[in-house]
């Protein structure tokens, strides 16, 4: 399956991805509705967009007591059916990455669904930091990236690997 891969070295923190996602979610440009969130590290002059990784063993999907979360057979996206979601928030507590968000106006959880296979965040990315690529490739990319630029950033997590 393909995922949205992130190359922090290329990201320029323009936040176009956040605006594009927010617009798709809510029809508005309030970034709080976005499922991709760009973390900006002023000191390190770096930024990292974070979004759902559609885990193979998606704990949010498994734990949902409303059976509202499923995997799209075509795109592989882990997606929430807003009509089934009761708003219990168990998926927010289940996600170890903080990538499930709560939509307070609708009272339901929301997350990246890969826009049905044409992610708006990637479309709107001006720097090539976001790419929609095969997950295997992304893992290689990740290793490269971790080796290089992220080392620098990871000192934010002193003591972390």
């Amino acid at each position: 399956m393909r995922i949205v891969a992130v190359d922090p070295d290329s990201c320029v923190a323009c936040r176009n991805c956040e605006y594009a996602c927010a617009f798709r979610q809510s029809g508005d440009f309030d970034r709080r509705a976005s499922h991709i969130r760009v973390n900006f590290y002023a000191e390190e002059r770096a930024c990292v967009p974070l979004t759902c990784m559609h885990c193979d063993d998606a704990w949010c999907l498994e734990v949902c007591p409303a059976a509202a979360i499923s995997r799209d057979p075509e795109t592989g996206a882990v997606q929430i059916d807003a009509a089934r979601c009761a708003g219990c928030k168990m998926c927010l507590l289940a996600c170890p990455f903080g990538n499930v968000h709560f939509d307070r106006t609708q009272g339901v959880s929301g997350k990246c669904d890969l826009c049905g296979g044409d992610p708006m965040c990637v479309r709107s990315c001006i720097s090539g930091a976001l790419r929609y690529i095969e997950a295997d490739e992304a893992v290689d990319l990740r290793r490269e990236v971790l080796d290089a630029s992220l080392r620098r950033l990871l000192h934010l997590d002193k003591g972390e690997k």
């Binding site: 885990c55 063993d57 893992v139 972390e160």
Partner: peptide, 16 residues
């Protein structure tokens, strides 16, 4: 602040 990267990026390995 949600700015810890170790946890959030290392998890990307989960995919593979």
């Amino acid at each position: 602040e949600g700015r810890d990267l170790g946890q959030r990026l290392v998890g990307r390995g989960a995919i593979k």
